[in-house]
Simulated scan of single mutants.
Amino acid sequence: MKIVLAPDSFKESMTAAQAVAAMERGVRRVHPDATCVRVPMADGGEGTAQAVVDALGGELRTVDALDALGRPVRATYGLVAAPGGTDGGASIAVVEVAAAIGLARIDPAEREPLAATSAGAGLLLLDALDQGAGRVVVGLGGTATNDGGAGLLRALGAVLRDAEGRALVAHGAPALAAVTSVDLTGLDARLAGLDLLVACDVTSPLLGPAGATAVFGPQKGVDAVRAPVLEAGLARLASALHAAVGHDVAAVPGAGAGGGLGAALLALGGRLVPGVELVARAVGLAECLVGADLVLTGEGAVDAQTARGKTPAGVAGLAAAAGVPVIAFAGRVLDPAPLLELGVLDVVEITPPGMPRAEALARGAEHLERAVAAALLARADVG
């Protein structure tokens, strides 16, 4: 029996590799002789750099950066040689913005979206350019920021100006509240020749009820008081970016990803690519599915957003094309319908009812192992 283990990370509980290990332990409880194919996945967020580096060979490079509150941190990104000597021999960098400005770096009590800046992500891109990268894959997701990428743009040489033409010094919401134009003339010249791919797992625009503030803001500390302040600032930035680049980057699906970093990277000439598709190609998931009897996937929460480019949906799509059944697992299952509509056999919540969140996160691997074993025992029709 061949079982492909292809989960994403379970946010704040397990990395994708740890989830794979827990799944394998669960499989072996029921099918000790099964062939388990380990394929840690990602969709542009946590684990993307590791997945691509593991698939293509390369290294993880650790550099000085800033977290979302502007504090010095050490952050890691991936650097690999271009396959087959493409890109003129230039390296390919894989940057997860969450490595610097991720939500996981900020204690819940310290999260302040009005002050948060994406400048640290810009520092990672600058280092990648210093290392000779001709292509940069930027994984969006999991950020503690909601600044529309203003901090990243400034780190790369852009200048935000107020109505009097003065360069703004402030970061976060204070800068957004005053910005009327974005001067891109001082951008690092190396960006002009860069192939910038933006691995994105959502289709949200920058603004509105489906935008960065409304959909992703609450997990970052955005409440009813902060939301209108941030939305108004992002609208000002969107207008300034439109004037600077000649088209409305804010309306593009995915512009709202990463607290609006999608919009900023589009303004730099980036191309939005579904993150799960990019990672799946890099790790050879389609090839791993050949001859498989079952696929196990999952992530921290399954909800209405899951079908919009998240790892379980991407894995389910490839598995369906290969004719392989899928079972998905999650710490919380808020809405299983989108995955069930994709043909997933079952969507299993691994957390015992009523368990406090902190305990559930700490014991995630234990719960996943147990849930996998129980699901396999219950499905005599698989394998």
Rank of each mutant, 00 (worst) to 15 (best):
V229Q: 01
R357T: 14
G254R: 01
L272G: 13
D43R: 04
T15R: 03
L272T: 10
G317A: 13
L176P: 03
G331Q: 10
L318I: 01
G233I: 04
P356T: 11
S204H: 15
E96Y: 06
D303N: 10
G26D: 02
G84L: 15
E369D: 14
L60Q: 13
V245P: 02
L261F: 03
T297R: 10
A320F: 00
V344Y: 11
V245C: 11
G58E: 12
M23A: 12
L368S: 05
G58R: 11
P353I: 12
E341D: 15
R363T: 14
L265S: 08
M355W: 14
A133C: 07
A264Q: 07
G141H: 02
L289G: 03
G300V: 05
V159P: 00
H31M: 05
E96R: 07
A6S: 12
V27M: 01
A238G: 14
T86K: 03
C200A: 11
P336E: 12
I92C: 13
G298W: 01
V138S: 01
V37D: 10
G85C: 12
L196R: 09
V222D: 01
A34Y: 07
L196A: 04
A214K: 02
A235G: 14
L194I: 08
A212G: 01
A362R: 15
R71A: 13
G141A: 01
G85Y: 10
A235V: 05
K2E: 13
L125I: 15
A330Y: 07
A371P: 06
A100R: 04
V20Y: 02
C200S: 14
C288W: 02
G300S: 05
L168I: 15
R74L: 14
A282Y: 05
K310Q: 10
G134N: 03
D335H: 11
A175L: 13
P352D: 12
D107Y: 00
G148S: 07
T48Q: 03
Q305F: 06
G291W: 11
P7I: 08
V27Y: 02
L60V: 13
A170R: 08
E277S: 14
L265Q: 11
L345N: 00
G47E: 07
A255K: 09
R308T: 11
L103H: 08
G165M: 12
G260C: 08
E110H: 13
P274I: 05
A212T: 00
A257H: 10
V372L: 07
T180Q: 14
V138L: 11
V252G: 09
E359T: 15
P353W: 13
R154L: 00
D127G: 01
R28E: 04
G256F: 04
D162A: 09
A167C: 03
D195W: 05
L160I: 06
G300R: 04
L361N: 10
A375D: 09
E24R: 12
G122R: 08
A51D: 03
T297L: 12
Q305E: 12
K310P: 08
F10R: 03
A42Y: 05
E231R: 03
A150W: 05
G149S: 06
D127H: 15
A321G: 15
A264S: 10
V302Y: 07
P113E: 06
G165N: 09
A321D: 14
